[in-house]
């Protein structure tokens, strides 16, 4: 007889206290058989993906093929991934790497929402890179599309070329601009603003200050699959933050990886396939 899978989920993903309270009540309850592709039933996917990430890092960069899989059925539209990304990369106002597109479907009273988290698709056949006049944006060895902030002249041709609106331009704004200064460390542009301006982020493993007209101000910015975290064996910020475990990340060149398993499913799709951009971001529908 198969194991009671719902109970095992609780013990794995819920807090111990929560599980302790609920689990006894479930003991005699009829259990619903989890779907075969329900990855949660096996192990918290984050644990598995971290393990696979470390395995992938042992290979040379060219042997890896990072992909992201987003299960739209699991996304609850909480926007936690968007905010995690903003926090991780210290994104200033007007810059977004991973918005969640929300669509209302149907007519009252039969209305529902559809959520679509949208990072950069890291296109295999990226239209954004060949237009760059100075090779500032290119596909790195691991297949991730990156921007060299010191090379970019800010012409924005790449934004125009991207069919997924995955690039935004850094206009040099800060959230704390023009806020009233107070005594406390957390108030005003002078004090709290330091958080925003000093050591802007660790994108691409670089530490940059936000100073007048200095990169990344005046540059185009985009999702880079949190390369700086990956390098250290940590999953991208959006992936670890997703409360619905809807975002999966890993090496598609590893046949045993979770992402390889997922993208082999028939219910997989990619955005605007007809353009031939070959995105490395897959959606499960």
């Amino acid at each position: 007889m198969s194991e009671p899978k719902e109970a095992s989920i609780l013990t794995k993903v819920a807090s111990e206290v929560f599980a302790g309270v609920i689990a006894p009540a479930l003991e005699n309850a009829p259990l619903i058989q989890a779907a075969e592709d329900d990855v949660l039933a096996k192990e918290d996917v984050l644990v598995r993906m971290e393990r696979e990430l470390k395995r992938a890092l042992k290979k040379t960069p060219a042997e890896r093929r990072w992909v992201m899989v987003i299960d739209l059925r699991r996304c609850v539209g909480c926007h936690a991934c968007t905010i995690a990304c903003v926090a991780e990369n210290k994104l200033p106002p007007g810059i977004v790497y991973r918005p969640v597109l929300t669509e209302e479907i149907g007519k009252y009273p039969n209305v529902t929402y559809r959520f679509l988290p949208k990072p950069c698709m890291q296109c295999e056949n990226a239209p954004c890179t060949p237009v760059c006049p100075v090779n500032a944006t290119y596909t790195n060895e691991e297949g991730v599309i990156v921007v060299d902030y010191d090379q970019c002249i800010g012409c924005r041709a790449c934004i125009s070329a991207c069919p997924y609106a995955s690039r935004t331009f850094d206009f040099g704004l800060n959230y704390t601009d023009k806020t009233i200064d107070g005594l406390a460390m957390t108030l005003g542009s002078k004090q709290a603003g330091k958080y925003e301006t000093a050591g802007a982020a660790f994108e691409y493993g670089e530490r940059r200050e936000r100073k007048h007209e200095q990169s990344p101000i005046g540059n185009v910015r985009k999702c880079h699959f949190c390369l700086h975290r990956i390098k250290e064996g940590i999953l991208p910020a959006c992936t670890t933050t997703c409360i619905g475990r809807a975002t999966f990340f890993g090496d598609a060149n590893d046949p045993d990886s979770l992402v390889s398993e997922l993208i082999a499913k028939p219910n997989v799709m990619r955005l605007k396939e007809d353009l031939g951009t070959e995105p490395r971001v897959y959606y499960l529908v």
Binding site: P130, V134, N135, Q151, I153, R156, A157
Partner: peptide, 18 residues
């Protein structure tokens, strides 16, 4: 342009296919 004074890069470090 975001970085007007980097225009020299187009001459010296450019991408001829752009």
């Amino acid at each position: 342009n975001g970085h007007l004074f980097r225009i020299w890069k187009v001459y010296l470090q450019g991408n001829p296919f752009s």
